[in-house]
Design a binder for these strands. Structure first.
Lengths: 144, 144
DNA sequence: CCTAGTATGTTATTACATAACACTACCTAC
DNA sequence: GTAGGTAGTGTTATGTAATAACATACTAGG
């Protein structure tokens, strides 16, 4: 999706950050992938153009893109996925289909305050929230 | 906490599973730890008794204990923590303090149905839910 | 007894992630 | 213009997490 790339360029320009070659490359690969990718698949894919691409290069790009909200890391299985809703900074849950492995993003507006409150009751002040899941997506349910 | 060990014994007996030496050892170490532990810290700690303890042994024990709900894996940082609320199978969120690294468990009864419903709207059927967080715990807030 | 099931022991390897340092490009202050 | 800072990349090496594959032991049922 070239949309995403253009959004990334815009976002970087606004915040004075550089949208450099490796960052672009990593985002392009992720945007073109149907499913979340493992870091090392990404590394070897990024290296296909003759460009030697080593782990730190890719991990740095991933950190950058994650911070900007253009990419999400799925903690459950250590994979990375381009964000469909870039720009927005909604809190987004990532639900991964057990069959096709695609990730579905679901907003959880209502849920964040509830969890924050529940945490606060125990004296815990939340600064970051991770909501993920597993299950079956619509397509795979219909196909079954 | 010997409570946890006794609970584990009981739980295993009821379900016809064996509470074997490595399983007990891993649970003991986790129960005695203030904070969630990384797998390899666990492995070397388990090996302190002269007993050679290799990764597969410990990972197998961890899988077993996680299935029984006696231990939780914290996906954010690949650590493991003994569960304070064994027996119950409440859905539990794990919030990790950025300062002291201790984990606080918070029930999220109310939240699960909301997320399930939000997922269902997009045709996604949830079978597993992971809710985790980061922030500051009560003790560290008071100390600050 | 012996065999099927369950669990552990052991070796080796695969996969995930970062430390540390050298180098480049660019920008800005003098 | 040039000294020095900042941000980013390249490269080597290593640290950390997890599992594959196969051998061995324990135990309960026929």
């Amino acid at each position: 999706m070239h949309d995403l790339i253009r959004q990334a360029e815009a976002l970087c320009q606004r915040s004075g950050m550089a949208f450099t070659a490796p960052r672009r490359r990593v985002l392009e690969i992720l945007a073109a992938s149907e499913t979340p990718m493992k870091a090392y698949d990404l590394i070897s894919k990024a290296g296909e153009g003759g460009q030697a691409t080593k782990p730190p290069t890719v991990y740095r790009a991933l950190d950058f893109l994650c911070q900007l909200g253009l990419v999400h890391r799925i903690e459950q299985d250590a994979t990375f996925v381009a964000c469909n809703h870039a720009g927005h900074s909604h809190p987004m849950a990532l639900f991964v289909c057990n069959t096709c492995l695609k990730a579905t993003e679901v907003a959880y507006h209502e849920v964040a305050p509830i969890l924050e409150k529940a945490a606060e009751v125990q004296g815990f002040h939340l600064t970051r929230l991770v909501v993920e899941g597993r299950g079956q997506c619509r397509d795979c349910a219909l196909a079954a």
